[in-house]
Every structure is written in C-alpha cells, then in structure tokens.
C-alpha cells in the first residue's frame, strides 16, 4: 500500500490543488464506483452513466480551485454529479414527448418509465429485484434523489442536507415520504 492511500479526501484534493496529479488519480479511484452507482440510478444506462461520471471528474479537474475546505470533498463531488445527472434528465425529458397515458399511475409525482436499455437487468434479474428497480425509476426526481443518497449510497442526513442544500428536517421528512412512495408503488405493482 502506498502512502497516498492513507490520506483523507480533503488532503488529496489539497495536494491536487498544489499540482500533484497522482492525488487526483487516487480520488478518481476512490469515487468512480460510488459515483457510477449514484448516477446510474438516475440514467438507467451504463454508457451514459460512465460518461456522466467522466464529466464529473473533468469538472473536478478543471475547477479544482473552486473546492474550499469548509465542505467535505464527498459532498462537493456528489453535488457536481447530482447536478449533471439532473440536467441530463431534464435534457432527456425535453427530447422525449410524453402523454399522460404513458404514465403507469394517475399521479403527477411520478416520472415516465424510462425505456432505455437496462444493463442491470442482466446482473439483477430476480423478480423482486426488477420490481424495486422499476419502482425507483418511477419515482419523481426529488424522491428518487433522496432514496439514492440515503438508502443506496447510505450517506448521512447531514451530508445529504449539504449536497441538496436543504435543511436537515426537510431531508428527514423527504426520506420518509420517498420511502412511503416506493412502498406504495411496490404494492401497486404487486396487485
């Protein structure tokens, strides 16, 4: 193990800001898989998700001096990736035209089912698994985001509050509402 592995994210970004490119590579190694798991849940396409994670790191590289030590590096990079993912979703929505009949539910809090190819189906094709993936896909964006951050990425309420720039109380209530939405969707799918 090299010495660089023992360093905190914040130490690595500081080294990178000082010109050490190896520190950047170490940050890429630490975050690439975490970010792909985060971003994939929005885009449901592995190629697009990888592209978006690449864009995230390119932004970090180009804007390394925008990072200030007052925030954790993780919340900073999740914010960048989350913003990119949301703007990609908005672009997709503009590209596609939907009618309300495309929706599986008479609930405008749900977004249309994504018809993009589902890479994950190959590795995760149990009925129960498919069910929950479908349910996540159908969640409205704010609920989807909070479920991904809290229940899939297992981030703390405090970090989520920083990433989404909303108060802790709102994070907690949104997590609860999102979970209830998910439970409601799953029970609807089973009926």
């Amino acid at each position: 193990m090299t010495q660089v592995n023992l360093k905190t994210d914040e130490e690595l970004i500081a080294e990178f800001q000082a010109g050490n490119e190896n520190a950047f590579v170490e940050l890429v190694d630490r975050y690439k898989d975490r970010l792909i798991n985060f971003v994939y849940r929005f885009l449901n396409d592995m190629t697009d998700a990888e592209d978006l994670v690449q864009e995230t790191f390119l932004k970090v590289y180009k804007n390394k001096h925008a990072y200030r030590e007052i925030a954790k590096f993780s919340t900073w990079i999740y914010t960048i990736a989350g913003n990119l993912a949301r703007s990609e979703l908005r672009k997709r929505k503009r590209r596609k035209t939907y009618t309300m009949s495309d929706l599986s539910y008479a609930d405008n809090e749900f977004t249309p089912v994504d018809t993009d190819k589902d890479t994950e189906g190959i590795v995760f094709n149990s009925y129960a698994g498919e069910e929950i993936l479908k349910a996540i896909k159908n969640l409205a964006e704010p609920f989807k985001t909070i479920i991904i951050l809290r229940d899939i990425q297992e981030l703390s309420y405090e970090d989520i509050s920083t990433i989404l720039d909303i108060p802790m109380g709102t994070v907690k209530s949104r997590v609860n509402r999102a979970r209830l939405k998910l439970q409601e969707t799953l029970s609807y799918l089973r009926e």
Binding site: E120, I147, Q183
Partner: peptide, 22 residues
C-alpha cells in the same frame, strides 16, 4: 412493507465502472 423495501434497497447489486475508465 417499508421494512421489506429497505431490505431490497440494501440488496441492490453494486455496479463498477469499466476497467478502462481511468
């Protein structure tokens, strides 16, 4: 049911970037 949902979320497979990513 909420408990079951949370269990399922925990069981979601972990994805990895491709080898050439970096």
């Amino acid at each position: 049911e909420l408990g079951l949902v949370l269990d399922k979320l925990k069981q979601l497979p972990t994805l990895s970037t491709t080898q050439e990513f970096t």
